[in-house]
Design a protein around this nucleic acid. Structure first.
Lengths: 341, 341
DNA sequence: ATATTTAACGAAAACGTTTTTGTTCCGTCG
DNA sequence: CGACGGAACAAAAACGTTTTCGTTAAATAT
C-alpha cells in the first residue's frame, strides 16, 4: 500500500540498500548487470524516492520562494509564469507569497521561507519597505537571493531591473517628437523608486529639448488606479493651461485619463496625446488603443530564476559568487493615443 | 554558523534531546521549569526546527499543489490569491503549476506533485483533458484532491463550481427582460463543459420566453480572444439579420465585439445590447462599461483550500471522508452595455 | 610465491526530528 | 515494610536516503 523504498528493492533482489541506492544513481563501483537489474526492479515496483528523506540527507529542497507585492496583477503574474516555467525545467518548485506592499508582511514572508528552508529567494520589494534587516538575515544565512523590479541598492545581491529613467525619457521624447509642446506627467507614489526614476526621465527629456519644467504639470497618483486617472484628468482640464500631451506612470491610470477626456469631449490623440507605461494587455484593446512603454515580465521571470539557480549551484560547489545587475530593455509601443502633429 | 539543533540545546542544558523536543511541544511529562528553561534557551539560540527532518518524521510537508491552466489570467490569478491567503493562515505553502490547457502537461504536473509528496492537490482541469487515469492514480495513493471550475464529474472528490447553465440563463434573461427580441450567442470551445452549459442556459431562456432558437445566431470562439470578438462581430453584422442583443461567453470577447460594433458605427447599447461573462476588471473600465455575470474567484480560492484542508485532517485522523460539491453563486452586474428599451 | 591493484559489494554513520517504551526516584497507601 | 503509582526524565527506534569507509575475492605485478 505504501510507497516502495530502497529497502524493499534490496530485499527483493537480495542485495544491500547501499548497492540499490548506488545502482539507481549509476555509481561506477556497481556492475552493469546489477545496475540493470536494480533499475528494472525499481520500475517494476514503481519506486519513487522519498523526497523528505532526500531533502534531509542532501539538505536541499529543490524549492525556491518568490515574494511579490500582489499576484492579481498583469506584470507580476507574468513574471511568476516565467519563473515557474524556468524552474520546472530544472526540477525546481516555486512557492509564491504576497506582501500586499507592506513591509511587516514582507518580513513575515521572508521569515516563513527561511523556516521552510527554501534553496533561494526571489524578491520584488514592497513599496513600503524602508529597512532591510530581513534581507541581511537572508544574507547572513548564506541563502541565495535575487531581487527584481523594486530593489534595494544597498543590499549586495544580483538584481534585475529596467532603466526607469531612460524609459521615462523615451516616453516623454516620443511626445516631444510627435509635436507636443506642453507636456504633463501623472506620476506614481513619492516613495516608489520606479516612479521617481520615470519622473526624472520626464524632466530630463524636457530639459534636453528646452521645455521649461513646471511643477504644476505634475499630478500624483498614490494608488495608481483607474479612478485617479479620471480625477487628475478632470483637474488638469479644469486648470485650462493648454496641455497637449501626457506621460502617465502606468497604463491603467492612462486609460482612466483617456476615459475622462472622452467624457469631457476632448479628442485623443488629436487634442491631447497620451502615453502609458508597462504595456498591459488592456492597453491594446481600448479605443483609442494606448501608446506605451513595454516592460519585460515573462523573460524577466526566466532570467531571475536562472540567476538564482546559478548562485545556488555556485554556493554548493564553493565557487565564489559574483553578483550582477542586469538592466533589461524597454521598448516604445506606438499605438493610437499619440499622433504626429 | 549552521542552524541550531535540538542536540545543541540539549548539550547546553545538559539534558536529553528527547526532553528538549518534548519541552518545546509542551508534553505533560516534562516539568514546568524544564519547559521554561528549554524554551528560553531555544529562543536564545534562535532555534528553528529543521523542516526536512520534521517532514520525514511526520510524513507530511504542509505543502499543497495547485494546478491551473494558466496563471496570467484574471480569474485564475485571483483564485490563486485566495488559496495562498487561506493556506498561509494555516501554515501551508502552495506550489503552483500550469497545464496550458494540455492533457499531457496536466499528467506530468500531477506526477510531479506526487513525487514532491504534497499533502493534497487542487485542480482545475485543462480543456483538453479527456481521460482521468492520472486522477485515479492520485486517488489510489490516498492523496486528497479537490477540483474546481472545470471538473470531472466521474471522479469522486470534493468539487467547487458555479452553475454555468443557470448563469447563462440569467444573462440571456436579462437581455430579454430589457427588451431584446433577437439574441445571438458567442460561445466558447465545443469541448469545454462550461461553454456547453452557458450555451444550454441561453437556449433555455429563449425557450422559456417563446423565442425560437436559431443555430445561425450562435458563433464559436475557440480561443476566446479579443480578435474573435471582432471577427465574429463583423460576420454577424454582415449577415444583417437584425440582432439586438448578444450574450458573450466571456468578457474579453465581448469587449472585442463592442469595439468592432463601434468601428462599424453601431451604437451599444442603443442598437445592440451586449452582456459578457466573468466580470473581469477590464469590463468595468471600457466605454461603454460592460454588463456581465460575476463569478467568484478569490472566495472560490479560499473555499477550495478549506475543503482540501479538512480532507487532509480527516484522512490523518482516520475519519471517513465525505465528498461534497459546492455550487457558488453568480451575480448579474448591470452596467452600460445593456439598456431597458 | 608474495605483494599490490582493481572490481564489486556492504556496514554503518549521518541528516534532525518524534514517539514509544523504559527507567529512576520519591511519596503514599494498605 | 512491601507494593503501588505518579512525576520527570532518557534510551532507542524509526522515518528513507546518501556517502564514507571497509571488506572480500579475483586479477595483475614483482
Amino acid at each position: 500500500m505504501s510507497r516502495t523504498t530502497l529497502q524493499q528493492i534490496a530485499i527483493s533482489l537480495d542485495i544491500s540498500v547501499t548497492t540499490v541506492s548506488k545502482a539507481l544513481r549509476s555509481y561506477p563501483d556497481v556492475s552493469k548487470e546489477t545496475i540493470a537489474r536494480v533499475k528494472e526492479e525499481a520500475k517494476r515496483l514503481n519506486y519513487k524516492p522519498n523526497a523528505f528523506a532526500v531533502n534531509l540527507r542532501t539538505q536541499e529542497s529543490k524549492t525556491i520562494g518568490l515574494v511579490i507585492p500582489e499576484i492579481v496583477h498583469q506584470f507580476f503574474s507574468s513574471v511568476v509564469k516565467g519563473v515557474i516555467e524556468e524552474a520546472e525545467k530544472h526540477g525546481y518548485v516555486v512557492i509564491i507569497l504576497q506582501t500586499d506592499q507592506k513591509m511587516q508582511i514582507e518580513k513575515k514572508r521572508i521569515e516563513f521561507l527561511i523556516e521552510k528552508q527554501v534553496d533561494g529567494i526571489l524578491l520584488a520589494l514592497a513599496d513600503e519597505t524602508i529597512s532591510y534587516d530581513h534581507l541581511y538575515e537572508v544574507k547572513s544565512l548564506d541563502l541565495p537571493l535575487v531581487m527584481f523590479d523594486k530593489i534595494a541598492k544597498l543590499v549586495e545581491c544580483s538584481k534585475v531591473i529596467i532603466d526607469d529613467k531612460k524609459a521615462g525619457y523615451m516616453a516623454t521624447k516620443h511626445l516631444i517628437d510627435t509635436g507636443c509642446k506642453n507636456i504633463a506627467h501623472f506620476r506614481g507614489p513619492m516613495m516608489s523608486q520606479n516612479s521617481i526614476d520615470r519622473f526624472l526621465g520626464y524632466k530630463k527629456a524636457l530639459a534636453e529639448h528646452n521645455i521649461v519644467f513646471k511643477e504644476s504639470n505634475v499630478y500624483s497618483c498614490l494608488k495608481m488606479s483607474f479612478e485617479e486617472g479620471q480625477e487628475n484628468g478632470k483637474k488638469m482640464i479644469e486648470k485650462n493651461n493648454g496641455i497637449d500631451g501626457v506621460f502617465v506612470n502606468t497604463d491603467l491610470v492612462a486609460v482612466g485619463l483617456i476615459t475622462q477626456l472622452k467624457k469631457m469631449g476632448i479628442k485623443v490623440p488629436e487634442e491631447i496625446s497620451v502615453i502609458g507605461f508597462s504595456n498591459w494587455f488592456l492597453s491594446s484593446i481600448t479605443t483609442p488603443s494606448l501608446t506605451t512603454i513595454s516592460q519585460p515580465s515573462f523573460s524577466m521571470g526566466q532570467l531571475i530564476f536562472k540567476l538564482l539557480l546559478s548562485e545556488i549551484k555556485n554556493r554548493k560547489n564553493n565557487i565564489p559568487v559574483e553578483f550582477e545587475t542586469v538592466i533589461m530593455p524597454t521598448e516604445l509601443i506606438v499605438r493610437e493615443s499619440t499622433l504626429a502633429r
